[in-house]
C-alpha cells in the first residue's frame, strides 16, 4: 500500500470536516468580528443528538434502513444545533454587541465550558460507541484504501461547501450577509434587518457544524462530550490559515490543515527516528497556527488583519 497516497486520502477526509467546521467560525467572524469559541461544542452536540436519535430509533425498530436512520438523526441534530445557535446569539452575544471585544470572547469560552458540562451531565463521561450502521466496505484508489464512510464524508462536505458558496454569492440572502459584514450601519440603511441576518449566519454555521459532528462520529465510530474542543481548535486554526472571514479561505485552510496533519503524522516517526510517533499528530495544527500568526496573520486568502480579540 502506498503510504503517501493513503495519507493524502486521510488528510482530505479529515480536512473536509475541518473545512465544514471552519466555515462556521469564519462566517461569524466575518459578520461580527467575533471568534465563537463555542462553535466546537455545537459540533459535539450535533454528534450527540444524532447518536441519541439513532440509538432510540434502533431500540424501537432494529431493522430500519441505514439511510432513513441517518436522515432522521441528521434532521434532528441540525434542528437542535440551529436552535442552540439562535439562543446563543440572542441571549449571550447580542447583549454584548457594543461591549469591548474581550467580553464576547470570554462569553464564548464560558458557553463552550457550559455546553461541555451540560453534555457530560446528559450523556455521561464515557466514550459512546456509534452503532455500526454504515456499510464497512473499502475501495481502492491510487493504491490506497478509502472506506465508504470516508467517501461519503468527502462528498457531503463538498456538496455543502459548494452550496454555501453559491448561496453567499448568488442569492439575496447571501448579498445581505456580505453587505452586513462590510457595514452593519449601511446594511440597515438598505432596509436589512441586521439582527436577523446575524442570527441566520449563526444558524447556517451551526447547521454545517451539526453535519460535521455527525460525520466525525461516523468516521471514528465514537462520540464524547469533549470531542468538540480539539476539533473546534483545529477548525479555528484552519480558518486562520485560510484567512479568517473568508469563506473560500476556510475551505482551503481546512483541506490544507487536514493534509498537513495526516502527512505529518505519517512521516513523523521516520523523520525523528522513531522518537515521536503519529500520536503527535495534534502538534502540527498548532505549529501551523503559530507560523501563520507570526508570518502571515491575514492567512492565505485574508485581506483584513484582526488586531482585535
Amino acid at each position: 500500500m502506498d503510504i503517501f497516497a493513503q495519507q493524502v486520502i486521510n488528510g482530505l477526509v479529515l480536512g473536509s470536516v475541518y473545512a465544514l467546521v471552519a466555515l462556521g467560525y469564519t462566517m461569524v467572524y466575518g459578520i461580527l468580528g467575533l471568534i465563537n469559541f463555542a462553535h466546537g461544542e455545537v459540533v459535539m452536540i450535533g454528534a450527540m443528538i444524532a447518536l441519541a436519535v439513532v440509538s432510540a430509533l434502533l431500540a424501537v425498530s432494529p431493522d430500519m434502513s441505514p439511510f432513513t436512520l441517518i436522515l432522521i438523526a441528521s434532521a434532528a441534530a441540525i434542528l437542535v444545533c440551529v436552535f442552540l445557535a439562535f439562543l446563543m446569539e440572542r441571549l449571550a452575544y447580542r447583549p454584548l454587541r457594543n461591549a469591548p471585544r474581550l467580553a464576547p470572547l470570554i462569553t464564548a469560552i464560558g458557553i463552550s465550558i457550559l455546553l461541555q458540562n451540560i453534555a457530560m451531565i446528559i450523556w455521561g463521561r464515557k466514550y459512546k460507541m456509534v452503532p455500526q450502521i454504515f456499510p464497512t466496505e473499502t475501495h481502492e484508489i491510487f493504491g490506497a484504501s478509502i472506506t465508504s464512510v470516508q467517501l461519503f464524508i468527502v462528498a457531503i462536505s463538498g456538496v455543502l461547501m459548494v452550496g454555501l458558496l453559491l448561496v453567499v454569492h448568488f442569492t439575496k440572502l447571501g448579498r445581505a450577509m456580505r453587505a452586513t459584514s462590510e457595514s452593519q450601519r449601511v446594511a440597515g440603511l438598505m432596509g436589512i434587518n441586521v439582527n436577523k441576518i446575524i442570527s441566520v449566519t449563526f444558524m447556517i454555521g451551526a447547521a454545517l457544524g451539526a453535519v460535521a459532528g455527525i460525520l466525525v462520529a461516523g468516521n471514528y465510530s465514537v462520540a464524547h462530550y469533549s470531542m468538540g474542543f480539539m476539533l473546534g481548535l483545529k477548525a479555528f486554526t484552519a480558518a486562520v490559515l485560510g484567512g479568517i472571514g473568508n469563506l473560500g479561505g476556510a475551505v482551503l485552510g481546512g483541506l490544507l490543515l487536514g493534509l498537513i496533519e495526516s502527512i505529518g503524522a505519517g512521516y513523523i516517526g521516520n523523520l525523528t527516528g522513531g522518537f515521536l510517533g503519529s500520536n503527535y499528530q495534534d502538534v502540527f495544527a498548532f505549529v501551523v497556527l503559530i507560523v501563520v500568526l507570526v508570518f502571515r496573520p491575514t492567512g492565505i486568502m485574508g485581506e483584513r488583519v484582526s488586531e482585535r480579540a
Binding site: 448579498r175 445581505a176 456580505r178 453587505a179 462590510e182 457595514s183 449601511v186 446594511a187 438598505m190 436589512i192
Partner: peptide, 13 residues
C-alpha cells in the same frame, strides 16, 4: 459596499 459589485450594490438598494 467596497467588495460588492456595482450591480450588487444597486440590488442591495
Amino acid at each position: 459596499f467596497g467588495r460588492l459589485t456595482v450591480e450588487e450594490n444597486l440590488l442591495m438598494g
